[in-house]
Design a protein around this nucleic acid. Structure first.
Length: 251
DNA sequence: AAGGAGGGCAACCGCCGCGTG
DNA sequence: TCACGCGGCGGTTGCCCTCCT
């Protein structure tokens, strides 16, 4: 037997969200905070699946989201993190405040992938393309969707993108899904781009950042409506977000 | 100016892991 | 220990917009 769908398909609207639906969802979440997503559409008066509401909120409506394309530093960070973590977009997004996993995933697939290929680097393994003599099936790390990180490939990236260095595991070990210790391994500072040059990038790559839950905006107590259930507090995070269309929601 | 091709992105789908009873 | 429900995640799809011919 297949798994039950997350919501009753009948009467559940799909497709692009309207401004009216956005408004309902935002108003509800500002007033009540994030609770049981399954109950949200019902309570908010939406004919949507709870998952759909969650996705819409996380990927689009969340006021702490950054808008626009990833800048060079962010892009470089994504490349580096991808070399270490693979396609674990949520983990990568966790180190990029204001960016969502979906956004990063899309950016990777549409921009960065092509960029790396153009530079002669395999976007999956982060190895130089011309060095690859084995087929993807023959490569365990590929089969597991895990990158084979190497100093050489990373250095090549650095060469091609001189403005922004990236760091990698100094021993060239591939990042493994089964070795969570990699997550906690501090990134080696790139000789071409020292911490002094970009302490922010260095900090984001550090354990301090990853383990600091205050950077997790979805659970941030500063903005969390669950912790600060008043609409006043909730509105504060709207006001902090300059390019958010507050007027769209008549707040 | 019109039509086709390609790219970008929002949203959906289905699986997985975790918490709970 | 097992079953179930839920949230979260990554892969994929499909629509819309832009560019090119």
């Amino acid at each position: 037997m297949g798994r039950q769908p997350c919501c009753d398909k009948l009467g559940v609207k799909k497709g692009p969200w309207t401004a009216e639906e956005d408004k309902k969802l935002v108003n509800f979440l500002l007033t009540h905070g994030q609770c049981c997503w399954r109950a949200v559409p019902k309570l908010a008066g939406l004919r949507r699946c709870g998952k759909s509401c969650r996705l819409r909120w996380i990927n689009y409506l969340r006021p702490d989201l950054k808008r626009g394309l990833l800048n060079d530093a962010e892009e470089q960070l994504v490349i580096d993190l991808h070399a270490r973590l693979g396609n674990r977009w949520s983990k990568i997004a966790a180190r990029l405040p204001g960016r969502t996993d979906n956004e990063i995933k899309n950016h990777w697939n549409t921009h960065i992938k092509k960029k790396l290929v153009k530079m002669g680097i395999d976007p999956i393994t982060h190895e130089p393309l011309h060095k690859q003599v084995t087929t993807p099936q023959e490569m365990p790390c590929e089969a597991n969707n895990q990158p084979a990180n190497s100093d050489m490939s990373i250095q090549q990236i650095n060469t091609n993108i001189p403005e922004h260095g990236i760091s990698t595991n100094s021993d060239g070990n591939s990042a493994s899904e089964n070795s969570p210790s990699n997550d906690s391994e501090p990134a080696e500072p790139n000789p071409n781009y020292s911490e002094e040059e970009d302490p922010l990038v260095s900090f984001i790559l550090s354990d301090t950042f990853l383990e600091d839950l205050t950077w997790d905006f979805s659970t941030s107590s500063e903005y969390s409506s669950a912790d600060n259930p008043t609409e006043e507090n909730s509105l504060a995070w709207f006001m902090d977000c300059n390019d958010f269309g507050v007027e769209d929601f008549e707040l």
